[in-house]
């Protein structure tokens, strides 16, 4: 499977935030997108997920077959927001996303164990701390299968131990032939990845 961006440009409110972005990722490859605030990291991820239209160029996903025909169908997207309902318990939230997204992978209890939240699945999501909320959101990556992970500042609010756990999760995903595009300004602690610096790129 290949995730390809060709001559991609994105805009926010009519102003171009990045242009001429090109990358091609094969199975087991990761791309770390770095750059200062406002350099277009989040916009790039949203364009790749097809949540925002690309103002130029396009994103393609090859080799997905019938199961993953388009980039948006093949990806998990973790944005700034956790996409969880505060009034529902962690288990209910994850159960919903697992059913809605299909392609179930790990059971919910196992996924929570992986992110170190094994004991709090029964609590309403609203009772959790910032870091725990983020970890619960990351557990969504594990409950249903997607070849591409788009992670926007995945470590926001995480402590050192959780960052390490996330790095292990990402390593394992890459080992299984997955693809990761992560926007961050902190090192994520995974080895052998491509990088794209949005800050030093000339604006188109």
């Amino acid at each position: 499977m290949r995730l390809i961006a060709e001559n991609l440009a994105g805009e926010r409110g009519g102003e171009t935030v990045f242009a001429n972005v090109e990358f091609a990722l094969e199975d087991g490859e990761a791309l770390i997108v770095t750059g200062p605030n406002g350099s277009g990291k989040s916009t790039l991820l949203r364009v790749v997920a097809d949540l925002l239209p690309a103002s130029e160029g396009k994103v393609r996903f090859e080799g997905g077959g019938e199961k993953w025909p388009t980039p948006s169908s093949a990806c998990h997207y973790i944005g700034h927001l956790n996409a969880m309902k505060t009034a529902l318990t962690v288990n209910e939230n994850l159960d919903f996303w697992q059913r809605f997204a299909g392609e179930p992978a790990l059971a919910i209890a196992e996924a929570l164990e992986e992110v170190g939240l094994g004991h709090i699945g029964h609590l309403p999501f609203g009772y959790l701390s910032t870091g725990q909320k983020r970890r619960a959101a990351l557990a969504r990556l594990l409950v249903s299968r997607r070849p591409v992970w788009l992670l926007d500042e995945p470590t926001a609010g995480l402590d050192k131990a959780s960052e390490k756990r996330l790095a292990e999760m990402m390593d394992q995903h890459l080992d299984e032939g997955g693809i990761i595009v992560a926007a961050t300004h902190l090192p994520l602690g995974i080895e052998g990845v491509k990088s794209l610096d949005m800050g030093t790129r000339p604006h188109g």
């Binding site: 169908s73 927001l81 996409a83």
Partner: peptide
């Protein structure tokens, strides 16, 4: 929209 779920509902448009 406020908690980010709407993005994911739109993202799954190929499936649902």
């Amino acid at each position: 929209r406020d908690d980010g779920s709407l993005d994911l509902l739109v993202l799954e448009a190929d499936r649902h």
